[in-house]
Simulated scan of single mutants.
Amino acid sequence: AIKYFLVQAAASALILFSSMNNAWHAGQWDITQLTHLPSSLILTTAIAMKLGLAPFHFWFPEVLQGSPLTTALLLSTVMKFPPITLLLLTSHSLNPALLTAMAITSAALGGWMGLNQTQIRKILAFSSISHLGWMIIIIMYDPKLTLLTFYLYALTTATVFLILNTTKPTKLTTMMTSWTKTPMLNATMMLTLLSLAGLPPL
């Protein structure tokens, strides 16, 4: 909880600082109209910290692993709405090179780091980082598509967490053994995970 608070507080402070810096140099407070390059870089970094994009992703897997499933669900979906909204509003003012670099790094790192995990929450955390990377890549070309992708991601992730909250597995091994107890939920879980991975049938 402290790690989450510190990261979010630092990111919020950076957002305010970028606005103040832009006002100092450009004479306007509108955060959606950043014209000063350092202010744009600071804002890009701040939003990346709030979302948990690489290389500012360090806090997200640890916080998710140490949280109850309901809290983890909120952190993975609802708590990403404000920074995503801010990202959509300011996407034209952000630094495209830095945004692209962080997006590609997030997409690659999220997929790579998730392969080595056995804890379900950490796998979902790295999945979130990877998905956000793809969303950030899209945002420069089609913000509406990014929003649609985020809605679908939030829906599928919420489904996964709600199923996990019912079956209560903590590792992949325990999730596999719960098939006999709740076959319907496990089948739904499998379909949802396939959907989250972008595979058929959903």
Rank of each mutant, 00 (worst) to 15 (best):
Y4F: 11
L6G: 01
Q8T: 12
A9C: 08
A11M: 00
S12T: 09
S12W: 02
L16H: 12
L16E: 06
F17Q: 04
S19N: 14
M20W: 11
M20Q: 14
G27K: 01
Q28I: 11
Q28C: 08
Q28K: 06
W29K: 07
D30N: 12
I31Y: 05
I31W: 05
T35C: 03
L41D: 12
L41N: 15
L41H: 12
T44E: 04
A46S: 01
I47W: 04
M49Q: 04
M49C: 08
K50P: 00
K50W: 00
A54Q: 00
A54R: 00
F58L: 13
P61W: 02
E62P: 08
E62C: 08
V63M: 03
L64W: 02
G66Y: 00
S67Q: 06
P68M: 09
P68D: 13
P68K: 05
T71L: 07
L74A: 15
S76K: 00
V78D: 01
M79N: 13
M79P: 00
K80M: 00
T85E: 07
L86D: 01
L86C: 02
T90V: 07
N95K: 09
A97R: 10
L98C: 13
T100Q: 15
A101C: 14
A101N: 02
A101R: 05
M102D: 11
G110F: 06
G114M: 02
G114T: 04
L115V: 00
N116V: 13
N116E: 06
Q117G: 01
A125S: 14
A125F: 03
A125D: 04
F126D: 01
F126R: 06
S130Y: 06
H131R: 12
H131Q: 11
L132S: 09
M135G: 11
I136K: 10
I137G: 04
I138G: 03
I139E: 05
D142G: 06
P143M: 04
L145C: 14
L145H: 14
L147A: 13
L148N: 09
Y151K: 15
Y151M: 15
Y153N: 09
Y153G: 07
L155N: 10
L155K: 11
T156G: 03
A158E: 07
V160S: 06
N165L: 15
T167M: 14
T167L: 11
K168W: 15
K168A: 09
K168R: 14
P169C: 11
P169E: 13
L172T: 07
T174H: 14
T174G: 13
T174L: 13
M176Q: 13
W179Q: 08
T180N: 10
T180I: 14
T182Q: 11
P183E: 01
L185I: 03
N186H: 07
N186E: 06
M190T: 14
T192K: 07
T192P: 03
L193A: 10
L193N: 07
L194C: 13
L196R: 03
G198F: 07
G198L: 10
G198I: 08
L202D: 08
L202N: 08
